Amino acid sequence: MAIREGRWDCPTCGNAGLPGRDLACSGCGNRRPEGVRFYLPDDAAEVTDAARLAQARAGADWICEHCGVSARASQDRCPGCGAERGSSPRQQTHEHRFDEPAKEPVRALAATAPPKRGRRWKGPAALVAIVGGLMWWNGPVEVTATVAAKDWSRAIEVQEYRTVQEEDWSVPQGGRQKRSYRAIRDYRQVLDHYETKTRQVSERVQTGTRTYTCGQRDMGNGYFEDVTCTEPEYTTNYRNETYQDPVYRQEPIYDTKYAYEIEKWLPDDTAWARGDAAKEPAWPAVRIGRNEREGARIQRYVLRFTDDDGKTYEREVTPDQFARYRQGQPVKLRKKRGGGDVEIVEPQAGT
């Protein structure tokens, strides 16, 4: 497994990118203290020198329990204070798999250059601006307008009770059967036969295994070791096979259908009345003849407004609103900046 030399940053003077083999900072001379984290640049080359490989494989550094500086695994005494190793703890080691979220700081497995903050926030900032713009465009705004016109319409449906001819799968109550006959009511699928067909099928066959670098291990002494994994390798084989494909036919389902007469109230005419602000809303006069009656009643009331800029708006209102607002009366309207329907801002009680 390949070994690569990492880097560390001096916490005293800020000197960055110090070689992992160095136990002291080349800038200020201070020795590497406890807690220094190693990181591996993206372009770190594989170590091939025998002496440095032996240094890496000797094990994790130990931290002097007296002065807190790092010492190599091969050293019996602290290079800082000269104390014997004794029970001093080892530097911690860490392993990271490439397909898992890093548990260490991002820099531990990345290049030394810090991320550019402007580039990181460009996308989210633009999204926030777009969403904010849409919210503003669709947000409500109030305008002052005047009731320019009032229109109303009312209608009464006239229904006639008459005999009609209908057909159905049963005769309803009050119907008089005239005739019956057999008719197709539905269809069902029935297996008719099988057809022999050919199709291509595939199957995966293991042909061997592949060894690849799947992570890196911080060896705790300034070096990193590649972690290798193995996985099976497959090939896809294709072959033709025959199969029996079912063929279905649509078979009709017959039932008895009935023709009958029945009396029903059916729409025959509609009487309308229309007017504006000069005429009070009223229902139209309806002449009801023999075998006739009044049916549904429909009414619609519309107010039209003009604002200070000459723009016109229309709103369908309730009968109470239609009676309450006079032509020429100023009103407040609420609408979206982008257009669409308007609503009347009703005055609060007591104002």
Score class of each variant (00 low, 15 high):
residue 240 N to M: 14
residue 240 N to A: 12
residue 241 E to Q: 14
residue 243 Y to E: 15
residue 244 Q to W: 00
residue 244 Q to H: 03
residue 245 D to Y: 09
residue 245 D to L: 12
residue 246 P to T: 05
residue 246 P to E: 06
residue 246 P to R: 01
residue 247 V to R: 13
residue 248 Y to I: 15
residue 248 Y to S: 14
residue 248 Y to K: 15
residue 248 Y to Q: 15
residue 248 Y to R: 14
residue 249 R to L: 07
residue 251 E to Y: 09
residue 251 E to C: 10
residue 252 P to A: 02
residue 255 D to L: 01
residue 255 D to F: 00
residue 255 D to E: 11
residue 255 D to W: 01
residue 256 T to G: 01
residue 256 T to N: 03
residue 257 K to R: 12
residue 257 K to H: 07
residue 258 Y to M: 00
residue 259 A to C: 05
residue 259 A to N: 08
residue 260 Y to N: 02
residue 260 Y to V: 03
residue 261 E to M: 07
residue 261 E to D: 13
residue 262 I to W: 00
residue 262 I to Y: 03
residue 264 K to W: 11
residue 265 W to L: 04
residue 265 W to V: 00
residue 267 P to Q: 03
residue 268 D to A: 13
residue 268 D to L: 02
residue 270 T to N: 04
residue 270 T to V: 15
residue 271 A to H: 01
residue 272 W to S: 07
residue 272 W to C: 03
residue 273 A to C: 05
residue 274 R to Q: 13
residue 276 D to K: 08
residue 279 K to Y: 01
residue 280 E to W: 02
residue 281 P to Y: 01
residue 281 P to E: 06
residue 284 P to T: 04
residue 284 P to N: 12
residue 284 P to K: 07
residue 286 V to Y: 00
residue 286 V to M: 02
residue 286 V to A: 04
residue 286 V to L: 06
residue 286 V to P: 00
residue 287 R to V: 13
residue 287 R to A: 15
residue 288 I to D: 08
residue 289 G to W: 11
residue 289 G to I: 06
residue 291 N to G: 08
residue 291 N to K: 10
residue 291 N to F: 10
residue 291 N to V: 09
residue 292 E to P: 03
residue 292 E to H: 06
residue 293 R to K: 13
residue 294 E to T: 04
residue 294 E to V: 07
residue 296 A to I: 11
residue 297 R to V: 06
residue 299 Q to L: 02
residue 299 Q to H: 06
residue 301 Y to P: 00
residue 301 Y to Q: 03
residue 302 V to E: 12
residue 303 L to E: 01
residue 304 R to W: 14
residue 305 F to I: 02
residue 305 F to L: 02
residue 306 T to I: 06
residue 306 T to Y: 08
residue 307 D to W: 10
residue 307 D to R: 09
residue 308 D to N: 14
residue 308 D to T: 15
residue 308 D to S: 13
residue 309 D to S: 11
residue 310 G to H: 10
residue 311 K to E: 13
residue 311 K to M: 11
residue 311 K to N: 12
residue 312 T to F: 03
residue 312 T to H: 13
residue 312 T to K: 12
residue 314 E to V: 14
residue 315 R to G: 06
residue 315 R to T: 02
residue 316 E to I: 02
residue 318 T to M: 09
residue 318 T to A: 13
residue 318 T to K: 13
residue 319 P to E: 08
residue 320 D to Q: 13
residue 320 D to P: 00
residue 321 Q to M: 15
residue 321 Q to R: 09
